[in-house]
Amino acid sequence: MKDDGAIILAILKYLEESMDGERVDHSKINEQSLGISHSRYCRILSMMLEDGLITGLTPVNLPGVTYTQYKFMDPRITLRGIEYLEQNKPSARAYALLKEIRDWIPGM
Rank of each mutant, 00 (worst) to 15 (best):
L12P: 02
I29Q: 07
Q32V: 15
I105R: 03
E16W: 02
P59D: 08
I7R: 00
I54G: 01
S46G: 06
T58F: 05
M19V: 08
E22T: 15
I105P: 04
P59M: 07
Y67E: 06
D25T: 02
T68S: 06
S37G: 14
S91W: 10
G52F: 03
E31K: 08
E50A: 08
K13E: 10
K89D: 00
M48F: 04
L97P: 02
L34E: 11
K89P: 01
G35V: 05
R102E: 13
A96N: 10
C42E: 11
V24D: 02
I82T: 10
S27H: 11
T68C: 09
H26K: 13
I105Q: 04
A10L: 05
A10D: 07
T55V: 11
G52I: 05
N30W: 09
S46V: 00
I54V: 10
E22L: 15
T55Q: 06
N61E: 06
L97S: 09
K71H: 09
E16L: 10
L79Y: 00
I29V: 15
A92I: 05
I44D: 13
D51T: 15
E86L: 15
M19I: 09
S27T: 15
P63Q: 14
D103Q: 14
L85F: 04
S18H: 06
K13A: 11
V24C: 03
E100I: 05
E16Y: 08
V24W: 01
Q69K: 11
W104F: 14
D20V: 13
K28S: 03
M19P: 01
L98C: 14
E86F: 14
H38A: 15
Y41M: 04
H26G: 08
L57S: 00
I29R: 09
L34Q: 10
E100C: 12
V60K: 14
L53I: 13
Y95M: 12
Y84E: 09
D74S: 09
Q69S: 14
L45D: 04
G81V: 07
E83G: 05
D51P: 09
L45G: 01
D103Y: 10
L97F: 11
I36D: 00
A10M: 06
L53G: 04
L98R: 15
K28F: 01
